[in-house]
Design a protein around this nucleic acid. Sequence first.
DNA 1: GATTCGTGGTC
DNA 2: TGACCAAGAAT
Length: 367
Amino acid sequence: MGNSHRWLEKIAPSLRLHLLDWYRSHGRSLPWRSIRDPYAIWISEIMLQQTQVNTVLPYYRRWLQEFPTVHDLARASRDHVLKQWEGLGYYRRAHYLHQAAQEIVDRFQGGFPADLPTVLSLPGIGRTTAGGILSAAFNLPHPILDGNVKRVLARLVALPTPPAKAQSRLWTLSGILLDRCEPRCFNQALMDLGALVCRPKHPQCCLCPWQKDCRAYNQGRQFNLPLAMPIRTRPHKLIAVAVVFRGQELLIDQRPESSMLGGLWEFPGGKIEPGETAAECAVREVKEEVGIDVVAEQELATVEHEYTHFSITLIAYICRYQSGTIQPLQCADVRWIQPQDLPQFAFPMANQKLFPHLHAWLATHPL
DNA sequence: GATTCGTGGTC
DNA sequence: TGACCAAGAAT
């Protein structure tokens, strides 16, 4: 291990030159690279967490249109912020952005901090995001360690373990390699190398500026590195959902802040218990979550959805209000709304899959 | 260190 | 189809 570090220190100057040279002619041109506004760069870094560039691009543009400065974000409503994030996933990121924006306004009068400990103190910002912001916005020499960098480094040194089990060592390697004179370009270049050349499936070693020094390549192991973590199987859940009508009005509730998909709105529902029908479950969940009595009238649709760690089948019922007053018993909020107002609320993707079926039902059931 | 967070894309 | 992955952080 010590040998590996000394070897890397020795060849690092040459690696930096080759990488920066490659980056000048092959680097991607991205909207957050042509600016220095730390607020906008921060937004891009948060959106890019576990999310591909092409997915982020439209959200990034809309966000800066909607919240051009940290002040605009800080004074926006939480529902409005979540609505702009709808569909991007990892919704806690939106809450953290909102909280951090208010902190930046309150603690620093809206000026983005430029030192590592303070940046790290903001919610939703870890070491990689902090390094990314500080190097991109202020050209400060802080290393990064995202998925691209982990893969590049794991191949460069022929890492003997899965990257997840060598975090500390990989941070050291990223710090050794970092070009202290051009940290901004270097970090961006390192990520582009991972995204464009040192790709997970088909690494383009013949185009790589580090080919002659790469241990994986020299050992013919570029297709087998980095080593993978053992897999675990994902459970499947059966969920009943109640689309409750009271006359023209529709019932929606807001998920608790601390739960999965926290702050998003949904149709009430929950896991079907053993020996229970989906319709019985839908009625029971409405009673438990918002305290009213309904009857299940008709099955609306069944949809499937995949999450990272489990999959679900949603069985949705059109239900009719019977009695009681809505209360947020197991949710953050609950409301009767007009069906045409649905787009004003942020919904998880699994619920959105029900929307076309609901529209079709409404079209054939006037009144 | 291992888990929990979403969604869209690829093969 | 299912596995895998993408500019990770918080617990």
